[in-house]
Amino acid sequence: MKKEFTPRITSFLCKWCTYTGADLAGTARLQYPTSIIPIQVMCSSRVDPVFLIKAFLSGSDGVLIGGCHPGDCHYETGNYHARRRFAIVKSVFESLGLESQRLKLSWISASEGPKFARVANEYTEEIMELGENPTRKNIFL
């Protein structure tokens, strides 16, 4: 049996969409797990790959980046850049043999409170399946 634990999912949420969506989930009293640790960023493209690594080294079990749907970015094109960068980060993780399932990007708009709650739940379950981030104990796998 897998050990019960509360994962820590560091979440970089864009101010204009996903963070507001998370707020909406809260005001609508939707249940989502405490594993989500939200950090507000001005745009999903603000997330430098070094943030992700830092999050893992600091003991996160997963990282979530949340941004506006394509075409809805407050800065018009930020999320397109975030998407390109994320694709490369994920492939580098994969090719090095790191667990790329611990990296997620999702488009959640300000009106999608229920979607935020669902993503938070699903991702948390997925991480529970995977177990703790091995870097938590013995630094870098």
Binding site: R83, K104, L105
Partner: peptide
């Protein structure tokens, strides 16, 4: 340069829906 460019219809198979 690739990382400052984008196309709207790029493959996004990795997005969590």
């Amino acid at each position: 340069p690739a990382m400052v460019d984008f196309r709207e219809d790029e493959k996004q198979d990795f997005i969590m829906g």
